[in-house]
Every structure is written in C-alpha cells, then in structure tokens.
Design a protein around this nucleic acid. Structure first.
Lengths: 128, 128
DNA sequence: ATAAAATTAATAATCATTACTATTTTAGTT
DNA sequence: AACTAAAATAGTAATGATTATTAATTTTAT
C-alpha cells in the first residue's frame, strides 16, 4: 500500500475525536484540510484502515456505521436520548470472563450497551 | 394493534428457527404459507414486533439486519468463515459483571463475538 | 526521467430498507 | 347481518448509505 495524504488526514481526523463519527462527518472534517477530497475516498480508506486493524467499524448503532480510532478492546455505551456513543473500558478480568463464557473460541467481541447516559438522566427530572 | 394473519405467520416463521434470518428469508418462508404476502409487510411487522419486544433485531453482523425470535438476554457468536450466527448463553453472574463494569446505567446490552466456529475449525486442518 | 502500480475525484450504480397509496381486512356497534 | 372507522396490506416508488467504475493523478522504484 502506497502512501496517500488523504489516508493520513482521514486517520488523523478520526484519531482526534472520541465521538465515534460517521463517514460523512470524517469527510466534512477532512475537507477543511483537503478541500478536494471525495467522500468515496473516505469510505475506501476507512475500509482499508479497518482491514489493517488501525481503526474499528462500529455497526448496530442507529442507522449509519460509526468509526473508532481507539483499537483497544473496549465496549460502547449508546445513549438512547442524545445518541452519543461513549467508550467504556472492560477490565481484563471481565474480558476473560466474557471470552470464556461461551463454548466457541472467540477472537474478538463487540459489546454495545444501551440506556440513558448520565447527562440526559440529569436533564430529565426523573429521579430514577 | 389489530390481528393480522401476516404478522402471525411472520412471527411463527421466525420462532421456528434459530438461524437469525434476514427479512428476505422470512419473506420467502412466509410466502410458502401466504403466497401473496409482500416484502414491505414483512419489514413493517418485524419493526412492530421489535417495538413490542417480541423479537430482537440483530445488527452489525455482515451487511443485512438479522432477526431473532429468542428474546432472552443472550449473546451471539458470528463465524467469520461460514457466516452462521450461534446463540450463546450469558450466565447471570457474567451478565451482572458486564452491566456493572461501566459507569453508565445500561438497560440492555448486545454482545457479538467473532471467530471461527467449531465446525469450520474442524474442517480446516489447522491444529489451532 | 520513466513507467508500472496505486490512489484519487467525481459520479453512477447498488440494494437494503422505508414511504406511499389505493384497496382490503378487522373489530366494534347497531 | 350491515355499517363504519381504524388498522393493515400488496404493490411499488423513493430513500440514502455504501460501493463500483473510470479517467486522471500521484506514488515509488529503477
């Protein structure tokens, strides 16, 4: 794989946030640096980078795919009110317990928690 | 919500398998019973049934959404070779450990393991 | 500097899912 | 049973995220 400035920018943009952005958002940010970059280039490079395990594609959160520059094995919390996706650590004890809890031999796992985040919980006056 | 024969058939078809089928597959099976059923009806009713928590939509497995008639909180193992999706129990100890491993208060979680299933492992002569 | 391979921008195509609409079915009421 | 309003359907069009195509540009090795 040859060097490309576009790929470098896309990766930097993704690594500069913890917001688990969509391809469209990464495209808009990248345009600030490379105004002529194309959306297809963003998609193509995100696919490459995922294959190289430089980034992670997070599916199953609302409708669009999200991308994550943090490749450490961690879980995601999706707030059903504000839609934010929050990284949550999974300690290695839990990780082992999860991976050994099934008969199959899993290489990786994806955990997506759903609920209402702390902020949204505070905003509503619901004492729960 | 009124009764509909179509919805009844769709639910029965889904409950008759553990294969986590796509909407298209459910449509094909339902046509054997109701030849004039339409694909849009299948999608509409799957969405209704998901809202009622009668079924679960499994996203993030390859490209198409999958559906699951088993609403017990369990995990999924996706084989990267054959593509099969296998139910795997999560014992309640692990469940509690997972849910309490994050600072946010999660209502539910979705776990998708990835790897190569036992069968595909046996077929290849790889001793690992 | 040259050439082959890789990459890109721009745009067309794909295709899973959803929206629309005229018609039919359901379920309650007389 | 007939009447009616709401709900649901079949068929099809529209949507929209993602992927494929292609001619032009860039990279990299020689």
């Amino acid at each position: 794989m040859n060097y490309s400035r576009q790929r470098e920018v896309i990766l930097n943009v993704l690594r500069s946030t913890t917001s688990h952005p969509t391809a469209e958002w990464i495209y808009e940010q990248s345009k600030n640096i490379l105004p002529s970059i194309s959306l297809a280039t963003v998609y193509r490079n995100l696919a490459y980078l995922e294959q190289l395990h430089e980034i992670i594609k997070v599916q199953g959160v609302f409708e669009k795919d999200r991308y994550d520059g943090n490749t450490k094995n961690h879980a995601h919390f999706v707030c059903l009110v504000c839609g934010n996706v929050i990284d949550t650590d999974v300690d290695s004890d839990t990780k082992v317990k999860i991976l050994t809890s099934i008969p199959e031999k899993a290489d990786t796992f994806s955990i997506i928690f759903s609920g209402v985040c702390q902020k949204c919980r505070e905003k509503s006056n619901n004492p729960n």
